[in-house]
């Protein structure tokens, strides 16, 4: 009886200790985080004009005004939609070509060995550098941005896809062969299926790349889009405008990241 009572006592003590530590951790963690953010914003707001040159650093309230202005004037929706459109089509183009290329080259090791040095050479071209070339080829409209975004996406998906195809265990293929799988079945049911998790990683991580590609394209030459908002405000020395546009872009990327996270969590169970 006494032993049992003591056991209860020990368990209680462990739970207590855990709870106490957990609560302490929770408060210190979240309060510190919140405090840091508030101190940062407040210091920015207050010090701007005192220590910080408002001309260069603007201040949170002014940035907020700019965001409100953008939304009310309708320029917000217009520009955001264009950038999203460029990124979307660029992503589709880049991801589709990369997936096909990865599947074909992953399945044909000799062909892959042949084109490898060429791929390495193209891969070494800093992605931004072909921007002006695309402007020359495709004009300053949406096409050049779509292709630049696709180029930003392509290698991320391609590399992941190839490593996915190569990661399929030899044993799976042997087992399927012994079971009498034909070549077509081998490719669709085992190899591509087995490569799916890697490919998914590539498809997920390359989404922000598409946005960046579109933005960089807009920096180089454009009349609309979030990238245009940023560079235009910068050219007019409108620091608050630059910050406002960057905040909008960051928010866009954040929303996409959250959506993607949800999607990939849904998909994770199926792709393994």
């Amino acid at each position: 009886m006494e032993a049992l009572a003591h056991r209860e006592h020990v368990l209680e003590r462990a739970v207590d200790e855990h709870r106490r530590r957990g609560r302490r951790d929770f408060w210190t963690l979240y309060l510190s985080r919140l405090a840091l953010l508030l101190v940062f914003l407040l210091a920015w707001q207050v010090l701007s004009g005192v220590l910080l040159d408002p001309y260069f650093f603007s201040r949170p309230s002014l940035i907020w005004d700019q965001v409100v202005l953008l939304v009310q004037s309708g320029r917000f929706a217009d520009n955001v939609l264009l950038t999203v459109e460029e990124a979307f089509f660029g992503y589709l183009l880049g991801a589709a070509t990369a997936t096909v290329a990865a599947a074909v080259l992953g399945l044909l090791p000799r062909a892959y060995a042949i084109v490898e040095p060429f791929l390495l050479a193209v891969y070494s071209i800093p992605s931004v550098a072909i921007g002006p070339l695309l402007i020359v080829w495709l004009g300053i409209g949406i096409n050049s941005k779509v292709v630049l975004a696709a180029y930003f996406v392509f290698f991320v998906v391609f590399m992941n896809g190839v490593s996915g195809v190569r990661s399929v265990p030899r044993g799976w293929i042997d087992v399927a062969r012994v079971m009498g799988a034909g070549r077509g079945q081998l490719v669709t049911k085992i190899i591509l299926r087995g490569a799916a998790p890697h490919l998914m990683t590539g498809l997920r991580t390359s989404v922000p790349q598409a946005v960046i590609g579109a933005i960089v394209g807009e920096f180089i030459s454009s009349q609309r889009g979030i990238g245009f908002l940023i560079s235009d405000a910068s050219a007019r020395y409108n620091t608050a405008g630059v910050f406002a546009a960057i905040s909008i872009l960051s928010l866009l990327v954040l929303v996409m990241a959250i959506l993607l996270n949800g999607l990939s969590r849904l998909g994770a169970r199926r792709t393994g």
């Binding site: 931004v128 960046i212 960089v216 560079s231 910068s234 020395y237 910050f243 960057i246 872009l249 960051s250």
Partner: peptide, 26 residues
């Protein structure tokens, strides 16, 4: 680390190339 982590992740999430014009402005 745990205090700063979300901010660093947020900064990491901002496309750094998009900061280009701001950096040039500065």
């Amino acid at each position: 680390y745990r205090v700063l982590e979300p901010y660093l992740l947020a900064l990491y999430g901002i496309p750094k190339l998009a900061l280009g014009p701001l950096i040039v402005l500065w």
